[in-house]
Design a protein around this nucleic acid. Structure first.
Lengths: 151, 151
DNA sequence: TCATAATAGTTACATCTGAAACCATTCGCA
DNA sequence: TGCGAATGGTTTCAGATGTAACTATTATGA
């Protein structure tokens, strides 16, 4: 095809990242979606609340990189299922205060190890040197892209 | 939180890949969605057909990592817009044969350079050594994850 | 202190998406 | 040959998603 730009998907970074990340996320998701009836957004919210309790919905959105509508819906479903509890911030009645319930913790304690295990299985294919480079490179790209996207 | 697994999203590989890849894809998509009225799936199909013409829908699906329903719909819309042409395989009447139209090429020739440029802008933040490591690591993870996902 | 703007979160609507059912064609094999 | 299974592709339906509009509350500043 003379005269046309050469865009080869197989070696195109955004494409490769996208496919890799999707198959990876789905592989983990498949497990907890069936077994615990949790969507990806729901699990993300739970994951972040398991790591840091008493966040507002906005804070959950920031930390999960989901938008506030997605968080609102995930929170509604998690409340309905009894996986989280919601209070209101004393100093600002607009803000909610979210945390895992007793039940929520039980689920978290099953899903989190699964996720970590999957990550380890994947990282096992890399040696120590490669892991360090990967971490470093992701940091750099992350920074660069976040700056770009805010312009 | 004693006794609970420590899953920190900020350093969790699948999560980092997912966020990075999404912001990256969206950044590029935003441009051609507005300017050329193309969805991500539509552009993916065009990209692969620009690189290799006369593919069947199934082959497009394989190369774009989209499922066949998504491809079917993207193809339908691209046909309606006149961006691609469709024939039938001589040896198998079930299979379609897809290629960019004259019009399609005109759009491809504008979007592909944009995408490549965005990739270059991102890669500019990495030095030669980092780029090599990244390519190598992605290869490895790609292989590993595809094998996993097919089990 | 009051009016306006900004923020937290929800709702409504239109679009997108995936799973499963579906049709047409081809393959495998007795 | 011919019949059941497999394959390529489309349609349907139910659920997910993003944008924009909305309510309630708090911040700002004349």
């Amino acid at each position: 095809m003379p005269g046309h730009a050469l865009l080869e998907l197989e070696t195109f970074l955004p494409y490769r990242l996208s496919v890799l990340s999707n198959t990876l996320s789905q592989a983990i998701a498949k497990v907890y979606e069936k077994r615990f009836d949790l969507s990806v957004t729901e699990w993300r919210a739970m994951a972040v609340l398991g790591y840091c309790a008493n966040l507002s919905a906005r804070e959950v959105a920031e930390r999960t990189a989901m938008d506030k509508v997605a968080v609102s819906r995930a929170v509604a479903r998690l409340l309905a299922k009894g996986h989280i509890e919601r209070g209101t911030a004393r100093h600002d009645k607009r803000q909610s205060v979210l945390r895992l319930s007793e039940e929520g913790w039980k689920i978290y304690d099953q899903v989190a190890p699964l996720a970590l295990e999957h990550e380890q299985r994947l990282l096992a294919h890399l040696n120590a040197e490669e892991r360090q480079w990967l971490a470093r490179i992701l940091d750099t790209l992350w920074q660069a892209e976040l700056v770009e996207s805010k312009r």
